[in-house]
Design a protein around this nucleic acid. Structure first.
Lengths: 334, 334
DNA sequence: ACACACTTTGAAACCGGTTTCAATCGATTA
DNA sequence: TAATCGATTGAAACCGGTTTCAAAGTGTGT
C-alpha cells in the first residue's frame, strides 16, 4: 500500500510535520526553499494525504450523504445522478445509502450517514417524518429533493405536482377531450395525490364532472398502465384520452392500447409525466410533463455545498413544463 | 451537533475509554455491571460512534469506492444501482466518483477514492489502462464490472459481447433474414466492437456475406438509431432486419421506421441489446439480448466484500440471454 | 545599539476512536 | 501459606493529519 505519510515527507524534506502541512494547505507562508523541498519530496515519494485523518483533525469529512430510493424509478435515479454531477467540482464526494436499507430503513440509513460525519445531507424523496428529520440532522445542513414538505422547516427542491397535473389535464381539455381517464400513482404517495388534484382542478375549472369510472388506481409502474387500460376496456368505459401518473405508466398504457389495435393519438390520446429519456422515442413520441430531475439533483448538490459554506439557500418550487410531442391530438370526430 | 464522544460515555459510566470501546465492539469480556452501565450511558446520551475516528484507528474505512460512468447510459446506471443494493447488508457504504470528473478524469477519480482510504474498489466500465489500474490500486482489492480486460491481472465481471451479438444475429438468420442491417455502438468502444464481431461471426457461420451498406456507424444513442435507419432508407438499401447496438438505439430505429410507416415486425424486424426496462413496453415489445446489469453490480459488490475478507474470487464472464418478444418475425414473403 | 513588531518554524496538543501493555484482583493449585 | 494463573481493567501509545503556542530569527524606527 502507498502508505507514505506526512511524517515521511517531513523527514525527507528535513522539516517538521507542521511545515509540510502548511505547504500542502497553503495555511501559512513558508520559506521558498523549504516549500520547494517539501513539494519535491511529495512528488518523489508519491504522497497522497490520508483524507480520513484529515477529516478527523478538521472535523469536516468533505463528504455529502445521499439518501436514495432505489425503487427502480427512473426519476429518482436521475435525481441521484444529478447530485453526483452537481458535486463534481465542489470537492465533496457523495456517499450513498439506500432508503430501503434492511428493514430498519430510512432513519437508520440517515443515522449511518451521520455516523460517518458527513458534512451535509441530500435526501431524495423518502417518507421520514419532518420533525424526525429535524431532530436527526441537528446542525448538519440538509436539502430534501423531490418531496413536498408541509412546514418551512427544511430547505427543499421539489416540483409543483398539482400544477403539473393541472397542465397536463388542461392541455387535453383544450384539445377537446371530455372523457379523460387517469391512471394514478401509488395511493399514499404525495406526488400521486397532487397530480390527481391537478387533474381534478382542471376539470373543475372547465366545468367538467369526473366520472369515477375514469379514475384508475396505479403504482407508477408500466404494469399498472397496462392494467388500467385493460380495465377501462373491459368495463367498456368510454374515454378519448389517458393521463398516466408517469411515463412508465404511460408506456404500459400505450402497449395495452397497441395490443387492442387502438391508435394513439388517432383514437385515444395519451399523456405522461416525467419526460424520461425514452419518452422522446416511443411511438408515437410521448407528450408529457417534464420534471427536471437531473437539474433538481444538481441544484440540491450546489445547495448543500452552499449551506455548508454558510451561505443561505431558499427552498425552490420548480414548475413542470409541458413537452408537446405527438401522443395528444383532438378526439376523433366520431 | 450530537458531539458526545466515547470519553463522555466513559465518564458517565465511571469506566475508562478502553472499557467502553471493548463493550461496544465486544472485543473482550467486561464485567456484567460495567457493561450494563456503559450500554445505559450510550443509550441515554445518544452516543453515535465517530466512524471517521474509528476508520483512522483501525485502518479500515468500511467504504467501497465506486467509479461510475455517467454517460446517461441506462445500462451503466443500472450496474451502479446493483452495487448499492449488493452492499446493503455488508456493512460497507459505497462512495461514488464519476469518471468524467473534471478534465483529469478517471485516474484522478481513482486517486481521490484511494485518498479516502476506501477498503475496496468497484470500477464500472471506463478506459484506464490495465497496468495503470494495477499500479494505482496497489493492494486495494478491486473489481472491474462491465468491461473486458485482456490480461488476467484483475478480477472482472463482464459480458461476452461477441456471443451476445452472435446470438442476436443468429436468431434473425434463423428466422429467415438475409439482409440484416447493424447500427453499431461507439466506434472505439470494446463492447461495440465485440457485438459487431458477433454479427460477423453469425453471418460467416451461415455462409452469408455482409453488404457493407448494411453496416452503419452509431454511438449507442437513440439518435444514432434514427440516423441509421434514415440513412438506410435514403440510400434505398434493401434490408429486412435491424440489429441495434443497444436498446436505446433500437428505440430510435423503431421511431424512424414508424415515421415512414414501416411496420415492425411485419416489414422489418428489430432486435436490441441490454434489455432495459422500457424494452418490455415498447410497441411492439422489443426482442433483445439481456445483460444482467443489476446482477452484475450486485455480484461485484459481493466480490469486493469477499476480497476484503481475504476470500478469493474468480473473474466471471456472463452470457447474455436472448429475450424473445415481438419485434422479430420472419421476413415478409415479398 | 536597543526596543519592538513581524515572520518563520518546530514541539506538542488535539481530533475520537482502537489496541497494546502492564497492573490488579480473585481463585486455584502445590 | 505461598505461588501461579487467568480474567478485568486503565494508562498510554497510536492512527495521520491540523492547529496552537512559544521560541527563534529578521527587520525597522529612534
Amino acid at each position: 500500500m502507498n502508505t507514505v505519510t506526512i511524517q515521511d515527507i517531513a523527514k525527507a524534506a528535513n522539516v517538521s510535520k507542521s511545515t509540510v502541512s502548511r505547504v500542502l494547505n497553503g495555511t501559512a507562508t513558508v520559506a521558498e526553499d523549504k516549500k520547494k523541498a517539501v513539494l519535491e519530496a511529495t512528488k518523489r515519494l508519491g504522497f497522497q494525504p490520508n483524507i480520513v485523518a484529515r477529516s478527523l483533525a478538521k472535523g469536516r469529512s468533505m463528504t455529502i450523504g445521499v439518501l436514495t430510493q432505489l425503487i427502480g424509478s427512473p426519476f429518482y435515479d436521475t435525481v441521484a445522478q444529478g447530485v453526483i454531477i452537481g458535486l463534481r467540482d465542489t470537492g465533496y464526494s457523495p456517499i450513498f445509502v439506500d432508503g430501503q436499507w434492511q428493514k430498519n430503513s430510512e432513519v437508520e440509513a440517515i443515522q449511518a450517514l451521520l455516523g460517518r460525519r458527513v458534512d451535509g445531507l441530500v435526501l431524495i424523496g423518502g417518507g421520514v417524518a419532518e420533525n424526525e428529520i429535524t431532530q436527526l440532522c441537528g446542525s448538519t445542513p440538509a436539502v430534501i429533493v423531490a418531496r413536498k414538505l408541509n412546514s418551512e422547516s427544511h430547505r427543499t427542491i421539489h416540483m409543483d405536482n398539482v400544477d403539473g397535473g393541472y397542465r397536463a389535464t388542461r392541455h387535453m381539455i383544450e384539445k377537446g377531450h371530455q372523457r379523460i381517464a387517469i391512471i394514478k400513482g401509488l395511493g399514499h404517495h404525495p406526488d400521486a395525490i397532487d397530480r390527481f388534484e391537478g387533474y381534478r382542478k382542471a376539470h373543475q375549472e372547465a366545468g367538467l364532472d369526473i366520472d369515477p369510472g375514469l379514475v384508475l388506481e396505479g403504482d407508477f409502474s408500466a404494469d399498472s398502465g397496462v392494467a388500467g387500460v385493460d380495465k377501462l376496456l373491459a368495463e367498456k368505459t368510454l374515454f378519448t384520452a389517458v393521463f398516466a401518473a408517469n411515463d412508465m405508466t404511460a408506456f404500459g398504457a400505450r402497449l395495452a392500447l397497441y395490443r387492442k389495435g387502438i391508435r394513439v393519438p388517432g383514437e385515444v390520446s395519451l399523456i405522461g409525466f416525467d419526460d424520461q429519456m425514452e419518452a422522446t422515442y416511443s411511438t408515437p413520441p410521448l407528450t408529457t410533463v417534464r420534471q427536471p430531475a437531473r437539474e433538481m439533483g444538481q441544484q440540491a448538490a450546489h445547495a448543500v455545498a452552499a449551506l455548508i459554506d454558510g451561505e443561505e439557500f431558499e427552498s425552490q418550487c420548480v414548475h413542470g413544463e409541458l413537452v408537446l410531442r405527438e401522443s395528444v391530438a383532438p378526439p376523433p370526430a366520431d
